[in-house]
Design a protein around this nucleic acid. Sequence first.
DNA 1: GCCAACGTTGGC
DNA 2: GCCAACGTTGGC
Length: 152
Amino acid sequence: MGYWLMKSEPGEFSIDDLMNMPGQTEHWDGVRNYQARNMMRDAMKTGDRVFFYHSNCKEPGIVGIMEVVRESYPDFTAFDPDDKHFDPKSDPDKPRWFMVDVRFVEKFPRTITLKELKQRPELEQLALVRRGNRLSIMPVTEEQWRFILGLL
DNA sequence: GCCAACGTTGGC
DNA sequence: GCCAACGTTGGC
C-alpha cells in the first residue's frame, strides 16, 4: 500500500467539507503542478492512504486520513472556461491534468501541526518540512506514516 | 500583508 | 536553450 500527503486550504476545501460530501467522497481537482500530477497519474493506487493537510491557515498541519477510491482520470475542471482552474492548453482529447477520487477515513482528535512535525528529526526527509518545498502532493514512507500517527 | 522560494512563460 | 520577468504557494 502507498502512503501520501495532500494539501488543501481549508477555506477552499477542508476535511469537514470532505466528511459532508455525498459518500464522503470527492475528486481532488485543481492540481496544476506537473510533479504533483505525475504522482497522481502514475503512482497513486486504489486503497492508498493519504494524510489530509490544511495549508495556508491559522494552524497548518495534518488533520486526518483519507483513502484513494478511484485512480487517475482527466481533471475536467481544466476544460471549463468558467472554472477557477481552467486551462486552455488542456484538451479533452489530450488532457494535461489528472485527478483521483478520495474518501474520508478519519478526522484526528487534534491537528498534528507543521511546527510539531518540523521538530522531529525522524521526519527530516519528509518533503513537507524541507526548506522551500511547495509540492501539494507528496509521498510518505511507511515509517514516516507510522511515526506521524504515533504523535497523536 | 509580507516575502522567500519556486515554477512557468516567453523573448531572444 | 538561456534566463529575466512574472505568478503562485504558503509559512509567518
